[in-house]
Each structure stands twice: as C-alpha cells, then as structure tokens.
Amino acid sequence: MKDLCVPVSGFREEDVAEVQLTLGDRKVKYNFRIESFPWDVEDDLSVFTDDVSRSLARIERLKNAIKNYDKGWELLQIFTPAEDAKHIQVLYRKKGLTES
C-alpha cells in the first residue's frame, strides 16, 4: 500500500487541514497539510470578464500563492477544484522528516 485516504466529514473547500502520520517500526513522522488558495474570486487579477482572461487570472493567482507559500512545506498535489469553486486545495508535506 502506497497511499492512505483519510475521510473527513464536513471538509469544505476553504478549510485547511493538518495530518500528522507516524509509521510503525520506522518511527517516522510526516506532517501533511491541505491548503486552500483563492481560485475563482474577484481581485486585482480579475480585470477582464471573458473566459480566457478569467482562466489566466486563476492560474496566475494559483502560481503566486504557491510561489509565496511557506518554504518549509513542499507541494505534493494540486486537486481539481469543483465547478464554480471559489477555492482550490493543494496538498503539502512538511520538509525534513522527523525520525526517532
């Protein structure tokens, strides 16, 4: 098994979650974080209203959010936002494993 799926009830697109995982004999701890970044929102980048410009603005917004994010965390995965979502969720893992 390579992946663990953790069901969380009532987890909303704008919520941020942190999970700490300890692997048995190896005594390794991972810290994961689901971060929530603005996606389809009105801001300085939303100058134009056509679909292409809105799409470019969303990507630019996401790029900026990732670029400026805490460098102590590394990006693992970007999840597909739901239709009309205002936020996009991104999975991070804390850099530097804790071993004991």
Binding site: S55, R58, I59, L62, K63, I66, K67, L75, I78
Partner: peptide, 9 residues
Amino acid sequence: QLFDGHIVT
C-alpha cells in the same frame, strides 16, 4: 506540476 495547460510549479 501542470495545471490547465500551464506549469505552475
């Protein structure tokens, strides 16, 4: 990481 046809990071 590719998203909507762009390399985002």
